[in-house]
């Protein structure tokens, strides 16, 4: 099993009030799974995605990602887990400005200590797979929204992650472009064997997943 989550809670203290974003969520994700996390805003789906991505640690419960117990990892080990096991795709792309497409894609490899030449080769190959072989040295500002998100997909997959987490990946794109990007994500995810987790409140998008997990008020409702 790739991800095992048991009775996860995440509690934030905001001043005097305590916010329970997750109130006991259990979830299992296997390799090759295609899962959609759906729910209205404030349901806790973003919080769950942060936990699944190793960006945050649960307040209680057990979370094992790729065989590693997240609660026992320090910040450096958590960073390593994100680098090796997770690939992120964000709604707002999160590309570094003033940095070429190929360098953006190569960024995770920088933190893995891959030599510059190899980095560029692998990043360029990955950009080729998402259909941007002709845009290697373009900067994000010179690319369309769909192209930017494809760069982000290439960045998420360049390390060969076990889980790809996509947070509203079509949210900033028109529907045709969104469809194309989603199709690419599914195709590349399937090709790499990674589990794909979509976070979305778009039912049409969620409908494409093999499995839907519905969250409400910090609990899984279906």
């Amino acid at each position: 099993m790739l991800v095992e989550a048991e009775e996860l809670t995440r509690v934030y203290a905001m001043g005097d009030t305590v916010v329970e974003a997750l109130r006991g969520v259990s979830l299992r994700i296997a390799s090759g799974d295609y899962l959609a996390l759906v729910g209205p805003s404030g349901s806790g789906k973003s919080t769950l995605m942060h936990l699944l991505g190793g960006l945050d640690r649960p307040s209680s419960g057990r979370l094992v990602i790729d065989g590693q117990d997240v609660a026992s990892l320090n910040r450096n080990q958590l960073a390593r887990l994100r680098n090796t096991a997770i690939g992120f795709v964000f709604q707002s792309f999160h590309l570094l400005p003033r940095t070429s497409a190929v360098e953006n894609v190569a960024l995770p490899l920088v933190y893995r200590g891959v030599p510059a030449r190899t980095r560029r080769q692998r990043a360029a190959a990955m950009l080729g797979q998402v259909g941007l072989a002709h845009r290697l040295d373009h900067r994000p500002s010179q690319l369309s929204g769909g192209e930017q998100q494809r760069v982000a997909i290439a960045r998420a997959l360049v390390t060969g992650p076990s889980v790809v987490l996509a947070d509203e990946p079509t949210g900033n794109l028109d529907s045709a472009t969104g469809q194309a990007v989603l199709h690419l994500l599914e195709q590349q995810g399937a090709a790499s064997g990674a589990a794909l987790v979509l976070v979305t409140h778009d039912h049409e998008v969620a409908g494409r997943a093999h499995r839907q997990v519905m969250l409400r008020d910090g609990l899984v409702v279906s």
Partner: peptide, 16 residues
């Protein structure tokens, strides 16, 4: 801050 967040998401350690 956004750049730092992104770098951390792709695996930068605090010391990096």
């Amino acid at each position: 801050v956004r750049e730092i967040g992104l770098r951390k998401a792709v695996g930068a350690r605090p010391r990096d």
